Simulated assay, not measured.
Amino acid sequence: MEEPALLAIAIGYLGEDFHGSQYQPKIETVQGTLEQIAYELTWGEKPRERVHSLKLASRTDAGVNVRKNIAVLELPRHIWKGVGQRKMVQAFNDRLPATLWVWGVCEAPVGFEPRFPLNRTYRYRLEGLANWPGSSIEQMEKWLAIFVGENDFSNFCNPRAISDRKRTIFSTKPWVNNGQVIGFEITGYSFIWNQVRRIAHAILCLARGDVTISEVEDALYKPEIPCDLGMAEPDWLVLWGMVHEELSFQEPEADLSHFSSSPEWLTFRQRQHWCRVAKAEVRSWMLQDGLSLRLANYKKE
């Protein structure tokens, strides 16, 4: 008997259209939507509690956008041979809502575990926050350096997060577009619930002068002393990608050239209006980038 085919499905989605990624009964989620379509295509069981055809590499909260996540589906090999990469991508996308898309499929080796990539990368567009005052590249680099390395992020996660709150951040860097800092990038092996959004709010507080670097360091290096520095909204957070050395996807560099720069000297109400424009840009860019990734991984058969 042939071994079943283990398929890695690369997906992207707009977070505000789903109540998070993880399956929840009678609620629109990314996993639930994908599993329902797999069921309709006879590629999986009907989704319900504790019965799941798909496993996601990363969980995301409602509102968080995703450029790349991986879903794993097991199929009998004869079905995979008959369908192939191109038809599978097309079959999913023909049935998915416009805010969730499959941009690639490849076969993974036996025993592949999507939850354990070499690393994950997030980006947060700080300039989308209504009260973001701006930052120089040098300032941002200094603030981000605080979080690099292994630390206990108890003060930078959801209080209901698991008990093991130690995480290792491999690298951070300012997210720069047209010479202007628009946010930051952060890469680590794994992230705890709300970690990046709380780091983003701490940086916002530093930029506004609401806290000092010493206060942020104390919150990080003294996790036994509770300290709540707030949490930034999910709309500007993007799960940018992850690296699995077992998978072979083509990922062209993202084109952010149509992102507009935040005008200076706006009133608070005017800035709120600009933030709505920026949010529309993110939606447009996510869809455009999803198409670019899909075309880069298109295989003629």
Score class of each variant (00 low, 15 high):
97 P>Q: 15
219 A>S: 13
239 L>I: 06
164 D>K: 12
37 I>D: 03
234 P>K: 08
107 E>T: 11
232 A>R: 06
245 E>W: 03
287 L>E: 11
269 R>N: 03
298 Y>E: 12
167 R>F: 05
27 I>Y: 02
208 R>F: 08
111 G>P: 11
46 K>N: 11
263 P>K: 06
171 S>A: 14
135 S>K: 12
222 K>E: 14
71 A>R: 03
158 N>G: 12
71 A>W: 09
53 S>C: 08
221 Y>C: 05
175 W>M: 14
271 R>T: 02
261 S>Y: 04
116 F>E: 08
202 A>E: 11
246 E>L: 08
144 L>K: 00
107 E>C: 11
38 A>G: 09
160 R>F: 02
216 V>N: 04
35 E>Y: 09
115 R>E: 00
270 Q>L: 01
112 F>W: 00
250 Q>F: 12
257 S>W: 04
93 N>D: 00
29 T>Y: 09
184 F>M: 04
66 V>L: 07
151 N>E: 05
277 V>R: 07
215 E>R: 13
76 P>S: 15
181 V>R: 12
188 G>C: 11
19 H>L: 05
166 K>V: 10
161 A>Y: 00
267 T>A: 14
122 Y>H: 10
220 L>N: 08
72 V>K: 08
284 S>R: 02
18 F>G: 09
46 K>H: 08
40 E>T: 04
132 W>S: 12
134 G>C: 05
50 R>T: 01
149 G>I: 04
137 I>Y: 04
21 S>Y: 13
30 V>C: 05
15 G>D: 05
85 Q>C: 03
223 P>S: 02
64 V>P: 06
168 T>W: 03
229 L>Q: 04
150 E>K: 15
252 P>E: 02
29 T>V: 03
8 A>I: 09
220 L>Y: 12
48 R>H: 10
289 D>M: 06
160 R>C: 02
178 N>P: 04
100 L>A: 04
135 S>T: 11
92 F>L: 03
189 Y>H: 15
251 E>P: 04
284 S>L: 06
301 E>R: 05
273 H>K: 10
166 K>P: 11
228 D>H: 12
289 D>F: 13
101 W>Q: 08
16 E>I: 05
158 N>D: 15
244 H>R: 01
250 Q>W: 02
22 Q>M: 08
255 D>T: 01
73 L>C: 14
224 E>A: 07
178 N>E: 09
225 I>N: 15
229 L>S: 07
62 A>V: 01
234 P>E: 03
196 V>P: 14
